[in-house]
Design a protein around this nucleic acid. Structure first.
Length: 473
DNA sequence: ATGTAC
């Protein structure tokens, strides 16, 4: 059992031991620490600290929980110039899973008479659940390549969105360096029929209302005001991203010995960033990231049509950001700028005010950090802070406390439906299994997680959003 | 998260 020691405000430290090259650092209250008997999340934080080239520490966000190899809520940066590695398990199976948030032009009260119809339209317009079907019919190989190279930017070119949307997408809507040729035939086959689809599990499309503003200046700059109706989309790269992760874990497992890399868990399979295996994964990962962003952009297009059909006006993109991705970023380490490979898995980039990668209209206030709550609970908008930690990263959600299996065992579907109805949340399209796996009782308290981000200096809360209606797989 | 095992 790994032990943690208190190390400041909402901060815990795992001392380097054995093969650990750096300490583990967990940002949490005592109550948020994943310390149930048998839980491996803290062991995973320690295991990540053994990776070649890791810099500063193996970090965990307040929503940390047990994942594949790396914990979900984990952040780890490696230095490619010092033998630093890239690990598919540090990105996760759902490559570029992320969140986009839109504002509308109507308040909750103005929209109230039309919300039932809006939810019916959104339910009908949102391909979801396991398997096939998307906003686009099965795409031909040439078009799939365009999506893998161009992401949201390509779909906007095709007419699925406003050119102005792209400024509010991380990376302008497309990650550079994507290579469709780095994808297996199976990954391509799984991707062709799911372009513009929600998926299942914790993915959702939610109509929300602004419930509380924490910072009026920043909220104003982002276009958020009390009672404003908003739409949040949480989805990823579907079967295509999953297949890429599986493919490259296998490749790296067999390559590690050649590079003299030993890891404490095969799920931490990795290769040097500068190696052929490392570069090929990054090129495939970028392609999956673009697929995920195109996916979310197509759902935005569907949302806009639904709002117009319901007589509820226009919808503006506030921001789109991934929380499962590795990126090459410049960071200051011990007073010197270094180019690092930052893995964020279930963790959101949180660039500070003034960062050059942020678009003009929001650069002054910092990068929006979009935090979806568990089903039926609040979601949050935060912004990155100047004194941010963990290579400018923050939480990505509430964080599970119960496995999917345990969640299904502990609550009957009727109880979950009653709870959502009592909270006044309209539900469309949710499967019984989806509802029980995603019961709020299986998650940490998102309010506490967000509050902890502020106390730990990861990001500052801007606004709290509450659910009005949800479309789920 | 995921054609919940190829």
């Amino acid at each position: 059992m790994v032990s943690v020691v208190a190390d400041g405000e909402c901060r815990w430290r795992i001392e380097p031991a054995g093969a650990m090259r750096v300490p583990g650092v967990v940002f949490a209250t005592a109550g948020l620490l994943p310390d149930a008997p048998g839980d491996q999340a803290l062991q995973q934080v320690a295991d990540v600290a053994t990776l070649p080239g890791i810099v500063e520490a193996s970090y965990a966000m307040p929503d940390v929980h047990w994942g594949y190899g790396f914990p979900i809520g984990g952040v780890a940066a490696t230095d490619p110039a010092q033998g630093g590695v890239i690990s598919p398990g540090g990105v996760g199976f759902d490559i570029s899973c992320g969140v986009r948030l839109h504002t509308s032009t109507v308040t909750r009260a103005d929209a109230a008479p039309h919300v039932g119809r809006l939810m019916d339209l959104l339910g009908a317009a949102t391909p979801r659940g396991m398997g096939r079907g998307g906003v686009l019919p099965a795409v031909q190989p040439a078009e799939l390549d365009e999506i893998l190279l161009g992401g949201s930017a390509y779909t906007v070119e095709r007419g699925f969105g406003d050119p102005g949307d792209l400024a509010f997408c991380e990376d302008g809507g497309a990650v550079a360096g994507a290579d469709p040729g780095a994808l297996s035939a199976r990954a391509l086959a799984r991707g062709k029929g799911q372009v513009g689809s929600l998926g299942s599990g914790n993915h959702f499309l939610e109509v929300q209302a602004v419930d509380r503003i924490y910072d009026e200046r920043v909220a104003g700059a982002l276009g958020l005001r009390p009672d404003l109706l908003c739409v949040m989309i949480h989805c990823g790269s579907r079967g295509l991203g999953h297949q890429i992760c599986s493919d490259h874990v296998r490749v790296m497992l067999s390559a590690m010995e050649r590079y003299g890399i030993r890891v404490p868990d095969p799920q931490l399979a990795c290769a040097p960033v500068t190696s052929p295996e490392g570069r090929r994964y990054l090129a495939a990962m970028a392609a999956a990231a673009n697929y995920g962003r195109a996916n979310r952009q197509l759902l935005t297009h569907a949302v806009r049509r639904c709002f117009r059909n319901a007589g509820l006006g226009e919808v503006r993109l506030l921001y789109d950001v991934s929380h499962n991705l590795a990126k090459l970023e410049r960071h200051m380490v011990d007073g010197a700028a270094r180019e690092l490979c930052v893995h964020r898995k279930g963790a959101t980039r949180a660039f500070p005010p003034g960062h050059p990668d942020l678009p003009d209209p929001i650069r002054a206030v910092g990068q929006p950090v979009l935090v979806p709550g568990s089903m039926g609970t609040a979601s949050y908008v935060l912004v990155g802070v100047t004194d941010g930690r963990a290579f400018h990263s923050a939480c990505h959600g509430a964080g599970r406390t119960l496995s999917r299996h345990a969640a299904v065992r502990q609550a009957p579907v009727e109880a979950v439906r009653r709870e959502l109805a009592a909270a006044g949340v309209l539900v469309r399209g949710a499967s019984e299994r989806g509802l029980t796996e995603e019961a709020p009782e299986a998650y940490k308290d998102v309010d506490e997680v967000v509050h902890t981000c502020r106390r730990a200096r990861l990001a500052d809360p801007v606004a709290r959003l509450v659910p009005v209606g949800v479309v789920k797989g």
